[in-house]
């Protein structure tokens, strides 16, 4: 938890546990979406749930947000029970749903003020807060526009502003940059960094590895309703993969051919992983791997050496690429 080293003085108790789950489960009929997960989220940290669509991230998020009842196990949010104290918990949370759920009949500014009303915030205070938050997400110039006139990135920023209207102790973001163009993604990330610096606790789900690496102090990797790994991004990379990865492509060679080729590569790196379109070589030193290929007289069409990422961690843990199938 390297992040705690940067913590500003005068911050609240960093060891306070905001969310704790033990053997948490959720089933829909026969389908078990979450199959017994345990985790703790502490005040001030940015905590991530990483996984493919259908891994159970969003379901877990909905249970924490008190809009879905756990089927079994225990869950506490702010030390309270979501089953009976949902409204009290929601009063202290900020939520950015994946589909924004902005109110299409209202303007940008009205969306914030009306939402503030749901938290019982007085009119005057709501207007001041709304103006401040619009400034924070750089939408002040659009405050009188209808929501559907905004771009996807702007709508997401507005949803973020809306989630902050009640000064939440924990902000939950469900895939905050899915569907945004690169520029809009960076703007969202930058704002989330700002929030982190203000000491707001953040909980986010993502299937983007770079996003998890950038934003999360600590994360868990979910697959098929279970947590298969947890730690800081660096820890996960250190524990589950080597420092570097070399990607080899061989012309148009495909799945079966690559699998056969992979057998001949034994020993050029710590681990060989054939994928449908390329072979990954996990190695502590890319130069050594390149030299080994040279010695064996193997000449791929392209060689790309890069730093290992969470994507590689996910691949190693699940044995398959993180596919972005629309659930």
């Amino acid at each position: 938890m390297s992040y705690e080293g940067f913590r500003l003085t005068g911050m609240p108790d960093v060891n306070e546990i905001l969310v704790s789950a033990a053997d948490l489960r959720k089933s829909y009929g026969d389908h078990e979406a979450v199959r017994g997960v345990d985790f703790e989220i502490r005040r001030g940290e940015a905590f991530g749930f990483l996984g493919a669509n259908g891994a159970g991230k969003s379901t877990t998020m909905r249970m924490i947000g008190c809009v879905s009842q756990p089927s079994a196990g225990t869950l506490e949010v702010f030390g309270r029970d979501p089953r009976t104290q949902g409204a009290e918990i929601r009063a202290r949370l900020g939520v950015v749903p994946q589909d924004n759920t902005l109110d299409g009949m209202l303007t940008v500014f009205e969306n914030l003020v009306v939402y503030a009303g749901y938290f019982g915030i007085k009119r005057r205070a709501a207007r001041e807060k709304a103006a401040e938050l619009l400034d924070f997400v750089q939408l002040t110039a659009r405050s009188k526009d209808q929501v559907n006139e905004l771009s996807g990135g702007m709508q997401r920023r507005l949803a973020i502003a809306r989630s902050l209207i009640n000064d939440p102790e924990l902000v939950i973001l469900d895939e905050p940059t899915t569907g945004l163009d690169p520029q809009a993604r960076h703007l969202v990330w930058e704002r989330l960094f700002q929030l982190k610096h203000r000491g707001v606790s953040i909980l986010l789900t993502t299937h983007y590895m770079d996003e998890a690496e950038q934003l999360c102090d600590r994360l868990v990797v979910m697959d098929e309703g279970r947590i298969i790994a947890s730690g800081s991004p660096r820890e996960l990379i250190d524990t589950h993969v080597t420092k570097e990865v070399v990607e080899l492509r061989f012309g148009t060679a495909h799945t079966a051919e690559l699998a056969a080729l992979a057998d001949t590569l034994d020993g050029v790196g710590a681990q060989i992983e054939p994928l449908p379109d390329k072979i990954l070589v996990y190695t502590d030193d890319a130069d050594d791997t390149n030299a080994a290929l040279e010695i064996r007289d193997i000449h791929p069409t392209s060689v790309l050496a890069r730093r290992a990422t969470l994507e590689d961690v996910f691949l190693r843990l699940t044995g398959r690429a993180l596919v972005e199938d629309e659930a």
Binding site: G65, A87, P97, D103
Partner: peptide, 9 residues
């Protein structure tokens, strides 16, 4: 509209 309100108290 109610999906957004859901996350409030």
């Amino acid at each position: 509209v109610y999906d957004g309100i859901l996350n409030t108290p």
